[in-house]
């Protein structure tokens, strides 16, 4: 199986590559359109700022490419946010694969970023969460979140419930970091590879 990780100007891309290696899968990290199109699975990870990332994706034609992919695609963290319609971070139009809006956490009590381990509540059946117990802990680091919408398949509660995972057609996305979420995260990555 060929797995490609989208290479762009975001951090943390190599963590996903290492995580795949741990579960016995070698992936190519690339921004080459042909390699991305030819892959069986595509992962769109990263940590970064939304408007800067969107500018880079547009300049490299990756915005239209990602939206046109037919194989299973997995967005992680800012990958999820960039797959939504719009982000408040830098007030930028995103890929629009999911109709959800990305907003900043606002709380007088809770700390931002939302950093650490929090629980996952499945809202709809998703193959990504096969064998993952209810209230399983996953690792988060983010200040922006996608609101709950029609494509939300799992939520986590911080300030208010937000989209922990989205799914539409061949597009999947996770706000948490499966690559850092111990055995639970590895199970979710394996489930994606098994699609």
């Amino acid at each position: 199986m060929k797995v490609a990780i989208v290479k762009y100007n975001a951090g943390n891309i190599f963590s996903v590559e290492y995580a795949l290696k741990r579960i016995g899968c070698s992936a190519v990290v690339t921004d080459d359109h042909e390699l991305l199109r030819a892959a069986d699975k595509v992962i769109f990870p990263g940590v970064g700022e939304a408007s800067t990332s969107m500018r880079y994706l547009r300049r490299h034609g990756l915005d239209t490419l990602i939206g046109s992919l037919k194989q299973p695609v997995l967005g992680v963290c800012i990958g999820l946010q960039l797959m939504c319609r719009h982000s408040e971070e830098g007030n930028v139009a995103c890929l629009g694969i999911f109709d959800e809006q990305v907003k900043r956490f606002r709380s007088a009590v809770l700390k931002v970023p939302h950093m650490g381990w929090n629980t996952l509540q499945p809202e709809k059946d998703s193959p990504l969460f096969a064998g993952v117990p209810k209230d399983a802990y996953v690792y988060y680091v983010h200040s922006y979140y996608a609101a709950v919408g029609e494509h939300t398949v799992a939520t986590t509660d911080y300030v208010q419930p937000f989209s922990a995972a989205l799914h539409k057609d061949n597009f999947y996305a996770l706000q948490f970091h499966p690559e850092k979420s111990a055995a639970v995260g590895e199970r979710i990555l394996q489930n994606f590879l098994n699609l």
Partner: peptide
Amino acid sequence: IAQHINIP
């Protein structure tokens, strides 16, 4: 470490 450890 990154190759073997699955937590931050």
